[in-house]
């Protein structure tokens, strides 16, 4: 390992710890977003009613999906923000290169994804506990209520990968948007158009289904890691082309 490489790593490490402290607001925004999702999930559970002869059955469904959805959106926003000019300029309070700046960002994204995955699954458990204590126990259908520790760990692992994927996508899109101001409008519009097209034409978003329909955890891991590497490499190339402030 050369002297320069060692310095890159050192600089990245230093920047990472600086960012953990400086961007602590990201964690708080995650908790608030999850709290909002928790309120929505509790209050807006899905209800179905069936009336057959002399029986009227109402089923109220709860799940942690909204919590995870909010966490995904948060991850995307936060990752994209890291590429914005303000945040990039913070890097130059240190001895820094584009590489060390990106490495520290990737480490930060991994940390945010980890915290996001653990807290979103745990908040799902909190939702279950709240429902348990606020509902007549006789009405709770036990199936799917208790999450076993292996289920919880699988969920945290899968959620971490999803969040890393979304963060990497956000980071890449953020880097693309930084190239020209007009892209701030153009990129979201194109993305929205693509999603609408996929939904109208195929009834699903195929590039989302590529990940969501994968039933093997190993294959899912490989797919996500490949995509994350591609996204980060793309972001790295783009950020190198941006003007360097010295």
């Amino acid at each position: 390992m050369s002297f320069i490489e060692v310095n890159e790593w050192k600089a990245a490490k230093k920047q990472f710890f600086y960012k953990l402290t400086a961007y602590k607001g990201f964690f708080i925004s995650l908790f608030i977003a999850q709290f909002v999702a928790l309120v929505f999930s509790y209050g807006g559970g899905m209800h179905t009613s069936i009336s057959v002869d002399l029986v009227s059955l109402t089923v109220s469904f709860y799940s942690g999906d909204m919590l995870f959805g909010f966490t995904l959106i948060w991850a995307f926003i936060v990752a994209a923000k890291l590429t914005s000019e303000n945040y990039r300029n913070n890097d130059f309070s240190f001895v820094s290169t584009r590489i060390s700046s990106n490495l520290s960002n990737i480490a930060l994204i991994a940390t945010l994804s980890f915290v996001g995955s653990v807290t979103s699954l745990m908040a799902g458990v909190l939702l279950r506990v709240i429902v348990y204590f606020t509902t007549d126990i006789g009405m709770i259908y036990g199936k799917n209520y208790l999450l076993s520790p292996p289920e919880l760990l699988t969920g945290i692992y899968a959620a971490f990968l999803y969040l890393a994927l979304v963060c990497a996508a956000g980071y890449l899109i953020g880097a693309v948007v930084q190239m020209h101001k007009v892209l701030i409008v153009l990129v979201p519009a194109v993305l929205f158009g693509l999603v609408s097209y996929e939904l109208t034409k195929f009834g699903t978003i195929r590039w989302v289904e590529y990940f969501t329909s994968e039933g093997s955890l190993l294959m899912f891991t490989l797919k996500v890691i490949s995509a994350v590497l591609i996204f980060f490499a793309g972001a790295l190339v783009l950020s190198n082309r941006l003007e360097v402030r010295r």
Binding site: S60, Y62, T135, M139, I140
Partner: peptide, 20 residues
């Protein structure tokens, strides 16, 4: 007789778990 009314509270396994 009166209609028998019942409410059930059920949970769906989180998506990121049930996928696997």
């Amino acid at each position: 007789p009166e209609e028998y009314r019942m409410r059930i509270v059920a949970f769906q396994t989180d998506f990121e778990i049930s996928q696997f």
